[in-house]
């Protein structure tokens, strides 16, 4: 892309977005259609269009606000924003990028603790078995998030419908999967 050739190195989120995922925050002209269609905009501290605006300012204070926001963790990646954006700005990818950066820089919003606990439990589960072990995931998540009583009522009904396994399935390629985790997490650091 020609525009990347003229990029000057800056330590701003907008710069990293352009360099890493080829998304130009400055293309957004704040029409707000993303916020209007976002199913969780009402729960967010900054609506999607506000996140884009914060990024456009390229100031350290606003970049910090973005990384510490709850919004980036609430985003469901339902892609409705991208689907209707007049400028076709890939906001879901922006959110992915911001989450990963927020996690790496240890700036995760305290309210997002449970959301991340779930994601971590999820990945943990597959890390050791290769496939998701739903009961294991749930138990690990409860341990991490201290939500012991949540969804307890579901369990017996799931069991009676044969929807909950008690023993994890372990794939043969388990060491391979473990290696994938190791390699990708090493790159993270």
């Amino acid at each position: 892309m020609s525009h990347t050739a003229t990029l000057t190195e800056k330590d701003t989120l907008a710069f990293h977005l352009e360099k890493n995922i080829d998304v130009l925050a400055r293309k957004c002209y704040q029409c707000g259609k993303c916020s209007a269609g976002c199913p969780v905009a009402g729960e967010m501290d900054f609506s999607p269009s506000m996140v884009m605006r914060l990024l456009q300012t390229e100031t350290p204070a606003n970049d910090e606000k973005t990384l510490r926001s709850y919004s980036i963790w609430l985003c469901l990646t339902c892609e409705m924003c991208l689907c209707r954006c007049p400028m076709e700005i890939d906001i879901p990818s922006v959110m992915d990028f911001l989450r990963q950066k927020s996690l790496k820089e240890k700036k995760v919003n305290p309210k997002a603790r449970r959301i991340i606990a779930f994601h971590k439990s999820f990945l943990n589960s597959i890390k050791y078995t290769g496939r998701l072990f739903e009961l294991g995931l749930t138990l690990d998540y409860k341990r991490r998030s201290l939500t012991l009583m949540q969804d307890v009522a579901l369990a017996p009904r799931m069991i009676s419908r044969g929807k909950l396994h008690f023993i994890p399935e372990i794939i043969k390629g388990r060491p391979q999967v473990a290696k994938i985790f190791k390699k990708t997490s090493k790159k993270e650091n």
């Binding site: 916020s35 209007a36 900054f46 609506s47």
Partner: peptide, 24 residues
């Protein structure tokens, strides 16, 4: 703010938008 979607419900047109001057 720009409208995201319009749909009909019980004889009314539900217009979904956002107020970007109130942070979306």
């Amino acid at each position: 703010g720009r409208i995201s979607t319009i749909y009909e419900k019980n004889g009314k047109l539900i217009v979904k938008g956002a107020d970007t001057l109130l942070g979306g």
